[in-house]
Amino acid sequence: MREMIISELTQAMQDLARGFAHYLPRLIVMLILAFLGWLIAYLVKVILRSFLRLIKFDRLSENAGASQLLNKAALPSATEIVSRFVFWLTLFGFILLGVSVLGILSLQEEIARFFLFLPRLFAAVLILFFGMLAASFSARAALLAAVNANIPSPRLLSLAVRSIIMVFVLSVVFEDLGLAEQTMLVAFGIAFGALMLGLAIAFGIGGKDLARRFLEQKFVRTKKEQDEDELSPL
């Protein structure tokens, strides 16, 4: 009995030692990969940060309205966020690569799926950024045009333009990420439809006086108003 226990224990210890001996080199490779990953990720971060500063990415982000959002959330600048994001992404990628060396099948499948997801994630981030840029540009253009045309509530008009574009951009982003595609499609349809219906009702009921004034100003201006209108600037 005693001998049997000792034999089983020895066998278990030997299995453990064999297993450990089997995994140790892989573990070391994983740690080396993680260290290399950290080094490369750090280098990528530094280079990317310098490049983004060179191309004045923060100004671009300010134009897109992203900086204001970051400021409100007390987050660092857009350059810093993007640099850190790429750092962690690279490091995480190397760690996953290291983990895959361990040869755990179920983990390997998940890692493969993650790497397949990366291009879509990048595309989504790009779409979101340029979408925000387009929304911010169009909203500001609408605001300026409305102010210079003396149209009432220019900020509301600007907000409507921004909202329409952002709703569209977000729906594209979610579709690209493959997150709740059907839900997003329905949500987009409902949100866009509701927005249009709201605008139609607002223009129809709330804006009838505004529309009348606008049409009057456009088509039935009196001679006196024309005379007083504007001085020749040049």
Binding site: N148, S232, P233
Partner: peptide, 12 residues
């Protein structure tokens, strides 16, 4: 003076 409208200021 040449006759102008309010909308002419921005192009000017």
């Amino acid at each position: 003076p040449v006759e102008r409208r309010a909308a002419d200021l921005v192009p000017a």
